[in-house]
């Protein structure tokens, strides 16, 4: 079933030490994903969030990843360079335990799509506006095993439908993909 394929892997290298906490990345991401494009700004809709705790000198840009229907059972803590982080600080999931990476009104999960656009952007927008180079974009060619995983998709969709109702999911799909095509 699996076959070898060349694939471009898009990588954003995050250098948290260089982050100045400006949240330009959040602002621009929300503007890019507005309909029509750039018609509104709202960092709460952003697919990148910067954990800012100035009095601990913690600055941590995190990208939105997969939706998860259930939260983790534990909450571990990390100490790095004397600073204490919660495990959740690093987590990309749109998770029921928090309001991060969810549309503020509908609660629908958000996920970074690397600024998918037609034509392709030279660099994702969050990277473009990060003049401090805390975010740097790299592309890498990789041989990967192409895996079809329709079941996973179906499971995910069902979970979402359970949580939000079928109509909301259909609306979201048509809103997101409807716009892509025009």
């Amino acid at each position: 079933m699996a076959e070898k394929k060349k694939k471009t892997v898009k990588v954003i290298k995050i250098d948290a030490d260089k982050c100045n906490g400006c949240r330009a990345c959040e602002a621009v991401c929300s503007a890019f994903h507005a309909t029509p494009k750039y018609s509104s700004t709202n960092p709460a809709r952003s697919r990148i969030r910067v954990v800012c705790e100035p009095l601990k000198n913690i600055y941590l840009p995190v990208y939105a990843g997969e939706y998860t229907p259930a939260e983790c059972s534990g909450r571990d803590k990390y100490v790095i360079d004397g600073k204490q982080y919660s495990e959740c600080d690093f987590c990309r999931a749109s998770c029921p335990s928090r309001d991060l990476f969810k549309e503020p009104d509908s609660g629908l999960p958000l996920k970074c799509d690397m600024c998918e656009d037609d034509p392709d952007l030279e660099e994702p927008l969050c990277v473009q506006v990060c003049l401090s180079d805390a975010l740097v974009y790299e592309e890498r060619e990789e041989e990967v095993e192409e895996q079809e995983s329709p079941e996973e998709l179906e499971i995910g969709l069902e979970e979402l439908a359970k949580k939000y109702g079928k109509q909301k999911i259909l609306d979201a799909v048509s809103r997101i993909y409807g716009n892509r095509e025009n």
Partner: peptide, 12 residues
Amino acid sequence: ERLISCYNCPMK
């Protein structure tokens, strides 16, 4: 310890 910016500004 670190240079920091205001909202949406790269100037630190």
